[in-house]
């Protein structure tokens, strides 16, 4: 009896270990190491890295660029998260209806997800080009002046936000579409017999039933709002004057352009704390309102 119980333990560990080895090597160990690194100085040449306590964090508090990218990232999140969710839901509702060319529309909406963000950025680079870019050409038809979308500090960040929403919405739409198709059509019919309008049905029935998906999608959207920075490398490199720089982009700059790895680790800790807090908060706050089948 004891023997077989022991065997089961061994099996369990054997089965778990491949995934666990990878998780520890590439996720947990680096995370812990990052936290440790943030309390050390960056080693350069013969100067070895030494323990400096909270010094890196003091620097961080006084770093104007850090505050700038944090504020940027805040606005980036504030716009991309709700807009991409609302847009994806609207698209899903639309292509879930019976309409002509439905499968073509679904595919069209999903295409941005399939494209690499670097490629997407190049397409948008053309859209934004002052003068002969697509947007300015259309604006020109109505007599508007040229606009340097990515070159002006006022519009650079919002140009990046638009690309991110465009990229994300199709991906989230797929989740909403899948969820919508699990709602039996008889609910819609029962509601229409009771005289419920389309909007009333959506508000009282469909949307509450989509809550598990909304929770999942919103957590993903939050993570993406910190993670999706590829297009910034291609389009603005954070400029002008850091107006379109985000936290992760700044971390990359500090770590691999300036080679200040300890400070980059400190910035990373900040990002980890933000993401963890938001994810946990979201989970506990929204989970209460979610009806799981």
């Amino acid at each position: 009896m004891r023997n077989s119980a022991k065997h089961q333990w061994i099996y369990a560990w054997l089965l778990l270990s491949p995934a666990m080895i990878f998780l520890i090597t590439f996720t947990h160990y680096p995370a812990v190491q990052t936290i440790i690194s943030s309390f050390f100085s960056t080693g350069r040449g013969r100067r070895k890295s030494v323990f400096i306590g909270w010094d890196n964090y003091d620097t961080l508090l006084l770093d104007e660029v850090f505050w700038k990218v944090l504020v940027n990232n805040f606005w980036y999140a504030v716009w991309t998260i709700p807009l991409s969710i609302i847009l994806s839901l609207a698209m899903a509702l639309w292509v879930n209806d019976k309409l002509r060319g439905r499968s073509f529309l679904r595919m069209a909406y999903f295409t941005p997800t399939v494209l690499p963000l670097i490629a997407v950025a190049n397409i948008w680079l053309f859209f934004y080009t002052p003068g002969f870019g697509l947007i300015d050409q259309i604006r020109g038809l109505f007599g508007f002046a040229e606009q340097n979308w990515m070159g002006s500090p006022d519009t650079a960040l919002y140009s990046m936000i638009a690309v991110a929403i465009w990229k994300e919405a199709g991906f989230f739409m797929i989740f909403y579409l899948a969820a919508l198709q699990t709602i039996p059509p008889s609910l819609r019919e029962a509601a229409s017999i009771e005289g419920a309008s389309k909007f009333y049905y959506f508000r009282r029935v469909a949307f509450p039933l989509l809550m598990p998906t909304t929770l999942f999608v919103s957590i993903n959207a939050v993570i993406n709002s910190f993670r999706l920075v590829d297009h910034i490398f291609v389009m603005t490199e954070g400029g002008p004057n850091n107006s379109s720089s985000l936290l992760l982009f700044y971390i990359y700059e500090v770590a691999f352009d300036y080679w200040d790895t300890a400070y980059a680790a400190t910035l990373t800790v900040v990002m980890l704390v933000i993401l963890t807090t938001v994810a946990i908060g979201q989970f506990f706050f929204l989970d209460k309102k979610v009806h799981y089948k």
Binding site: S186, L187, E189, A190, A191, I193, E194, G195, R204, L209
Partner: peptide
């Protein structure tokens, strides 16, 4: 008309009371 469906078509996230008065609230 009022209709009873084969699958009952009850709203799974609403309580029995809310299900019954659904139409009254609509109106």
């Amino acid at each position: 008309i009022a209709m009873v469906f084969q699958s009952y078509a009850l709203f799974p996230h609403l309580t029995v009371a809310e299900n019954i008065v659904f139409g009254l609230r609509v109106r």
